[in-house]
């Protein structure tokens, strides 16, 4: 069969992965994924700034970075809870309740972030 890690095979696999992804996921999932990508970029940007320029107000860095990480994680949780494929996993968490949990968690997160930021 095809070798494990030859570049053409890898790029083929990535291409097929992308195709499978865009076919199989619903619009709402993609919407969540866009949000996730934004959060990831923002987090990476802050991390690079901290490492390359300065980490002086370390608490501000932690607050900003945790805000991104926390929001990312909560959104990813929302995604997995809302995904119809996972219905069996989350017996007691309906999609509406998932969103409510997501909103509450995010508010608590942002509360702590702003307390830690300044």
């Amino acid at each position: 069969m095809a070798p494990k890690s030859s570049p053409p095979a890898a790029s083929n696999v990535v291409h097929s992965l992308w195709k499978a992804y865009s076919d199989q996921t619903s619009d709402r999932m993609k919407f969540i994924d866009a949000f996730l990508v934004f959060l990831m970029l923002s987090g990476v940007a802050q991390f690079l700034y901290c490492v390359l320029v300065t980490d002086y107000p370390f608490n501000a860095f932690l607050a900003g970075f945790s805000s991104n990480v926390g929001q990312f994680v909560l959104t990813a949780s929302l995604r997995s809870q809302v995904n119809p494929e996972n219905k069996n996993e989350f017996k007691e968490v309906s999609p509406e309740r998932a969103f409510a949990d997501f909103a509450l968690g995010s508010i608590v997160l942002h509360f702590f972030v702003y307390n830690f930021l300044g």
């Binding site: 608490n59 945790s66 909560l74 990813a76």
Partner: peptide, 26 residues
Amino acid sequence: SRLYVAYSSWYAIGTLASMQVPFVGF
């Protein structure tokens, strides 16, 4: 996924919150 949801939400919020206590700090 349940493990993922539970642990991530606990860790992200909990760690950020725990740093609010000055004695714990960073």
